[in-house]
């Protein structure tokens, strides 16, 4: 399958000497739903900046659908739709004008651009604001406007830098559905996010970047399989006796809540059986934290990447 994006030995050193990217390699297949995760300052936005030519690279190669940005920048750009992290549209222009002008920069005729603007404004529930100046929109609406703008030239790859930052849960889920639908239509999607749940829910493949180095690049299932221990929070019936669970590491939080660590080699069923034998009823159970988050912390914490990269 053709590669939507291929990055080789990409380096970026900013004026002043800060090395944001230390030679990263990354490959995204056509049709993929790909997550690029990392803490603040890890190099996510710099990577996106280089791909979209907003940041000049120091060294390395970037190809978009086989087109090298050093040799065929305009062709490479024509495949990409970008939803940046910061709002970067003219706040005084109407939504329709923003979208139609953006389409024009990609060579889309004005009549066709108006039709597409209507299509995406309706799909993203912004149609009733079409003539309003963009500054009048709420934060969530502005994010959706940037998604609509990125789609106006019908790109083959959509890059979203923290697309749901500051968006409420209901809206975030509707945006997830929208992105899933775009991906089903064949658009390759690359997103960076701080919401690890978002990456786990949406993405098939993932790369984790920390301090300008890719510390992990694999498919989501393999990544989650690396997690050896999962912590469950069990809510017990009120006035239950203090539980004793043999063979498991557990903590009693209060009179009716316990946390139990379950290794991959163990079965959560054994915990229930032991509690049942002690006449303790479990009323509910949940994961203590997002599994991906645990893995993320273990990968980017304490310089784990140094060993991974052999540096």
């Amino acid at each position: 399958m053709e590669k939507a994006l291929e990055i080789t030995s990409l380096k970026k050193t900013y004026k002043g000497g800060f090395q944001a990217l230390k030679g990263i390699d990354l490959s995204v297949k056509q049709g993929d739903f790909f997550a690029l995760l990392g803490p603040n300052g890890a190099g996510k936005s710099t990577t996106i900046g280089v791909i979209t030519s907003l940041v000049n690279k120091t060294a390395g190669q970037v190809k978009v659908f086989g087109h090298d940005i050093d040799q065929a920048l305009e062709t490479a750009k024509s495949f990409i739709g970008l939803v940046p992290q910061e709002f970067n549209f003219n706040q005084f222009e109407s939504l329709t004008k923003i979208l139609v002008n953006q389409a024009g920069y990609y060579g889309v005729e004005r009549s066709l651009a108006h039709k597409r603007a209507e299509k995406y404004l309706k799909q993203l529930d912004l149609w009733d604001k079409k003539d309003a100046p963009a500054r009048n929109l709420s934060g969530g609406m502005k994010r959706r406007l940037m998604i609509a703008r990125a789609l106006m030239h019908e790109p083959k790859v959509l890059i979203l830098d923290e697309p749901t930052a500051g968006v409420d849960i209901e809206l975030r889920r509707s945006m997830w559905d929208f992105l899933r639908e775009l991906n089903k239509q064949g658009i390759t999607i690359i997103l960076t996010t701080h919401y690890l749940e978002e990456a786990e829910m949406l993405c098939r493949n993932i790369a984790i970047i920390d301090s300008g180095v890719i510390v992990e690049n694999t498919d989501m299932k393999s990544l989650l399989a690396k997690l050896d221990v999962e912590t469950f929070v069990l809510d017990l019936k009120l006035n239950s006796p203090e539980p004793k669970i043999e063979g498991f590491c557990y903590r009693v939080i209060d009179g009716h809540t316990i946390e139990v660590d379950v290794k991959k080699s163990q079965r959560i069923n054994d915990v229930f059986m032991q509690l049942s034998e002690q006449q303790i009823d479990v009323q509910s159970m949940r994961n203590k934290s997002n599994r991906l988050e645990e893995l993320f912390v273990s990968l980017v914490g304490s310089g784990a990447h140094v060993a991974a990269q052999g540096e």
């Binding site: 979209t52 030519s53 907003l54 920048l73 305009e74 062709t75 750009k77 024509s78 990409i80 970008l82 940046p84 910061e86 970067n88 549209f89 003219n90 706040q91 002008n101 953006q102 920069y105 990609y106 060579g107 703008r149 030239h153």
Partner: peptide, 14 residues
């Protein structure tokens, strides 16, 4: 200043 110049910079506009 508003960074909307990026709309042109990311597009294939010579």
């Amino acid at each position: 200043w508003q960074r909307n110049v990026e709309e042109m910079l990311v597009a294939p506009v010579p």
